[in-house]
Design a protein around this nucleic acid. Structure first.
Lengths: 137, 137
DNA sequence: TCTTGAAGCTATAGTCGCTAGAGACATTAT
DNA sequence: ATAATGTCTCTAGCGACTATAGCTTCAAGA
């Protein structure tokens, strides 16, 4: 049996966040001590680890809830789990693409100002004037 | 003079968002018509365009507030504006790096499950078991 | 057994950057 | 004059937490 603090230390998930996951239905409400404190089993520790890992990979709580639900029914085909991972991968790739476009514009803007004062600052001019952009966003 | 709707159409910033920017002190409170509706000048239109552009580039409202403040004092050295753009660029690059690591792990996980049912699904196993990861996060 | 300090409890509010909705009032076109 | 559209304020909601207040419980040492 683990206290909530031990759960936090072992998984790296902060205590209020664990309680939040319980409230959001990602963690089932654990047993309680006589004094009403949460006492977790190994199974629950593992589930929290699963959630942590999936969060680190950027999955939404909704997606994680789906995966947990799938996991609870081991006979269902795993196509659905595949789909969730795939979908997320696509959105990650999209985010990378957009960030890279942004990076190239920003790096053109940043550190490029030779003027001494804001009056002629290229950074501010570039931000004011969209036509200075090399591609549209 | 522009109505809030014209401002929205010209900049692509939604009406409630414009009012929100006013509340947050990014836009100054504009003149009002006799019927208490907002009437904006060209200057204010330009500022909204500036904000939009900076937001599209991912700058926080705080950073934008700083830039606006700088812009209002044209004699200050522009090193500060440079710094804001630089800092933001660094954080964008960091986000790209992290997303790329994530992408490689996810693409390893996704679409790789040959099992028929969730019981042996690689996606779910990979998410449960951090040791399957190729690099640490 | 008592005490102390750390850890845990609930409940509520705040974060960021919007977005949506309700219900009332203003403006514009016909 | 009326209808259609636009705008007003106010409030609440989103996701995923984080912080605070004021309380109770637990574990270890004296």
């Amino acid at each position: 049996m683990f206290t909530i603090g031990q759960m936090a230390r072992r998984t790296g998930v902060k205590i209020p966040t664990i309680r939040y996951y319980e409230q959001m239905g990602l963690m089932t409400a654990p047993e309680r001590s006589q004094g009403n404190q949460r006492r977790y089993t190994k199974t629950e520790l593992d589930r929290l680890g699963f959630i942590k890992h999936a969060r680190d990979l950027g999955l939404s709580l909704d997606a994680i809830r789906d995966l947990i639900r799938l996991n609870a029914h081991p006979e269902t085909p795993c196509a659905e789990a595949d789909r969730i991972a795939d979908e997320h991968l696509a959105s990650v790739r999209d985010r990378i693409r957009r960030l890279q476009r942004l990076e190239s514009e920003l790096s053109r803007i940043a550190s490029s100002c030779k003027a001494g004062t804001v009056k002629d600052c290229y950074v501010i001019r570039a931000l004011s004037d969209h036509t200075l952009c090399e591609d549209d966003h």
